[in-house]
């Protein structure tokens, strides 16, 4: 079910949801970023989703960022191929 669309601080909820990544990356103009911050101050639905989304992105970066080591047998084969 589509959430109720509200307009707060000159932005609709759908606009905030659509621009979340841009906001998190710091890619929005200061005025736009301030509008989003004002919107989420007064819109609990957007504040809740925005926080969950932000924590998910952060979790991906921190929990999955470090790659697992290459299996030893594969690393050994690679070394042999490069040495030949």
């Amino acid at each position: 079910m589509r959430p109720t669309e509200r307009e707060v601080a000159g932005l609709k909820c759908s606009q905030v949801m659509t621009e979340l990544s841009l906001y998190l990356e710091g890619d929005l103009a200061p005025r736009r970023a301030a509008q989003i911050e004002e919107h989420v101050t007064h819109c609990q639905a957007c504040a809740d989703f925005g926080e969950g989304f932000r924590r998910m992105v952060e979790a991906v970066r921190t929990r999955l960022g470090e790659p697992e080591p290459v299996p030893a047998d594969i690393a050994a084969t690679l070394r042999a191929a490069l040495d030949s």
Binding site: P3, T4, M17, D48, G52, R55, V60
Partner: peptide, 27 residues
């Protein structure tokens, strides 16, 4: 917008995304 709804935007359990994302195996 439909993708957002499926992701939990505007849904009744806003905390479940953050809670689930804390589990590495789930991610």
């Amino acid at each position: 917008e439909e993708l957002g709804v499926r992701a939990g935007w505007g849904g009744p359990n806003p905390e479940e995304l953050a809670v689930a994302a804390e589990q590495r195996d789930l991610l």
